[in-house]
Design a protein around this nucleic acid. Structure first.
Lengths: 152, 152
DNA sequence: AGCTATTTTGCATAAATATGAAAGACTGGA
DNA sequence: TCCAGTCTTTCATATTTATGCAAAATAGCT
């Protein structure tokens, strides 16, 4: 399946927040050997219900649909609350310990949130490692986890 | 203040989900004696960080920013959980009883969520009346309230 | 009020996005 | 295999959105 694969790529590209127009997708996909035109991207965006968000800094960037984000955050929160054991940070890393079996699920949820500041995520059975893009980002992520754990 | 007032109108227009393009805003605002061009709307949308969402039914419509929606839903949930007494529905109405003093706050939160299906909201000291656009909508709203009350 | 700085708007148009229609790919038969 | 139906893509272009710039409005002074 060609289309689905491309759309997976598109999702992955989302977290790198420099995507300001559809042509950016075209360019980035071409770099990955996937040759498409803007027209197709436009249709993909419609399919996937992505939105072009005016960012606080003056530009625009594409992002996950509202509903999905809300749903995912909800699951994320629940998983965190259910399985959370401890966390630690060092440098640009955040390491979350969870109850055995919950690592991959949590990592995948964090992935699909497409946080702008997250470079990558890795989960084994009971540990999730999140690699941030900057030290500031690490702090922010930490606060977000705090928030998810504490609020209801 | 001209701009702010217009932006308030724009927010109010959001809940009527037939707004598919910026020109629709122009048209609807003109109907309310507010004379603007599409250029201004484009800037307002950027200011307010509204997004154009591809809807499930094939079209597009403008909507509140993700973050604000999430924040508001959070407050709404908290308020509901804190102040909820009972609710009842009849026809296209949902009537929520809350602890004294919480009616207006709750009504206003529901307003700012801009639910597509809500025609209007009215809150006195301890009661909130929500008027839906259809019977189906009433059911949906009811379920949403259930969800907010039960989940965490 | 009169003047200056700042903000907001419209106009014109550039830039970006969406889409009809034709062509190409893919699917599951017969 | 060949075909009909379905799905997907591109091309060309219509439609929609964003923006530079000049004019107008607004706000803050004195």
């Amino acid at each position: 399946m060609k289309k689905q694969e491309r759309q997976r790529y598109i999702k992955r590209l989302l977290s790198s927040n420099e995507i300001e127009r559809q042509e950016d997708f075209v360019r980035l996909l071409r770099a990955e050997e996937i040759d498409v035109t803007q027209a197709t991207i436009s249709r993909d965006i419609k399919d996937m219900q992505l939105v072009k968000v005016p960012s606080a800094t003056g530009g625009y960037h594409y992002s996950m649909p509202v509903q999905k984000q809300m749903d995912t955050e909800k699951k994320l929160k629940r998983t965190l609350k259910d399985a959370y054991v401890s966390y630690a940070t060092q440098d640009k890393f955040v390491l979350i310990k969870v109850l055995p079996g919950n690592g991959p699920a949590l990592a995948s949820l964090i992935e699909t949130m497409h946080y702008d500041n997250v470079f990558g995520t890795l989960g084994d059975d009971s540990t999730v490692l999140i690699i941030c893009k900057s030290l500031d980002a690490t702090l922010e992520l930490q606060q977000m986890i705090q928030r998810l754990l504490s609020d209801n």
